[in-house]
Amino acid sequence: MHKYYTLLWIFSGLIVSCNSVKRTEKSLLSGDYDKAIEMAVKQLQSGKQAKNHKSFVALLGDAYQKAVEADLTQINYLESLQNEEFVDRIYQTYLGLRDRQQKIKPLLPLQGAKFVLNDYTEQIVAYRDKVSVYHYAIAKDMMKRGQKADFRAAYDELVHVDQVNPNYKDIRSKIEEAKYLGTDFVIMSLHNKSRQFIPNGLPDQLMNFNPNNLNKKWTVFDMDDNPKTNYDFAIDIDLEHLEVAPEQYYIERTIIEKQIVDGWTYLKDKRGEFIKDSLGNKIKTDNYLTVRCEFTEHHQYKAAHIGANLYLTQLNNKRTLREEPLEAEIIFENHYATIRGDRRALESNHLNLMNAGPLPFPTNEQMIYDAGEQLKSKIVYSVKRLF
């Protein structure tokens, strides 16, 4: 049996080995040279394919040679077009040539295949500079147009330059400039139009936003007017009315009757004689008792409501872009019950109310603050939808 499993293991290994060679060959023949290189390198690094070592070396050499030839041919073709738009592709191709060499270097030398390695540093540096010049010039032209969309597009171009060539010229300051000029600045303010007294802390509560919850890549919100900022939009929240309903307390009384089992007795016939079953035993029957309970349900209720309008204004032309009503309502409710009589008449839903009790009504100020928190959440939701 041991010999059988040993042979099976060897046979399985041969199948896996053959399959690995075939998959590498398939990638090579389909023109996916880098995939073939990756597969061959992985097998040679593992050292598990000793029997097919020569095959993988040959495949690696063939794939490497063809990949280099393909890249250099593409570079020569793109350079012949003399079009600046292709500098990124040429630059990335030179990086690929360098990285491919770095991948196979730890395996060299390999008997049975020749690998020509070149130093592409000069070409990489030259095209890095060409990429920088090309995209920097595009960004400068975009910024001359003076539109938000152009500043944002210029920002992306400049960030690309910084990623390729850090500290190129004044790239960092240009990135900051494009970011600032491409950003929409929004001032938010609250106005009491209700002609009603509002708690002193309510305005601060409503406008106490965490800017990180609102700010986006190209939108910055201010709650305090900064005279040095040229705002693009204004969001005005007008409080139209605040109302706290009077405390309400009312009761509902219900008489509940129920028949319950209260012991048992022997069943008798009309003559007063005991009724027996077929075995001669006396038959028992339940005694029923009608119980009664007065169930009083107590209800406490109080509500607060705030109504407001949100206005979005474009400041350069004073045009109102959006008007949106906002409503917030907080309701205090409490229900409990008391009884007089036999509680055996009650159901489980009645008993649950008996476990509760009266609660103090919240103050008007607390109700307004609670409604304010709800209104603030709706303001945040609306503002996020606008930008």
Results as ranks from 00 to 15, higher is better:
L108A: 09
Y91F: 15
R89C: 06
N213T: 07
L242Y: 05
R340P: 00
V116A: 07
I251L: 10
K48A: 07
F86I: 01
S20G: 12
V161T: 04
D262G: 01
G280R: 08
R343G: 00
T121M: 03
D224H: 13
Y134A: 05
L44P: 11
F274M: 06
G31E: 07
E247G: 05
G201I: 12
T290I: 01
A67V: 08
E176A: 11
T338R: 12
R322H: 08
R385K: 10
F115H: 04
D286F: 14
Y336K: 05
K258N: 14
E243R: 12
A126I: 07
G31H: 04
A154L: 06
F274C: 00
A126F: 15
Y249K: 14
I175E: 05
I104P: 07
T229N: 02
V220P: 01
W264Y: 12
I237R: 06
D34F: 11
H160R: 07
P109Q: 06
P227H: 04
L95D: 08
D225R: 12
D71C: 06
N83F: 02
L359E: 13
V186W: 06
F86D: 02
W9G: 04
S194W: 05
I187Q: 11
E333T: 15
N230Q: 11
A154M: 04
V21R: 06
Y369A: 01
E247W: 06
T24I: 02
Q49P: 00
E365S: 09
Y336L: 02
I260A: 09
Q374A: 04
V57C: 00
A328R: 01
E122P: 02
E257R: 15
L14K: 10
L375D: 03
D232G: 15
H53A: 00
A126Y: 14
A308C: 07
Y288N: 06
R343N: 11
D184G: 03
V16S: 08
N287R: 14
A153V: 02
S80W: 06
N83C: 00
W264V: 04
Q43Y: 04
I104M: 05
Y77E: 07
R319M: 12
V244I: 12
I75L: 03
F185H: 15
N76E: 09
R23C: 01
P358Y: 02
T219V: 14
A63M: 08
S17G: 15
E85V: 15
I104R: 09
P211I: 03
K217F: 03
H350S: 04
Y5I: 12
Y91H: 15
A63P: 12
Q163S: 10
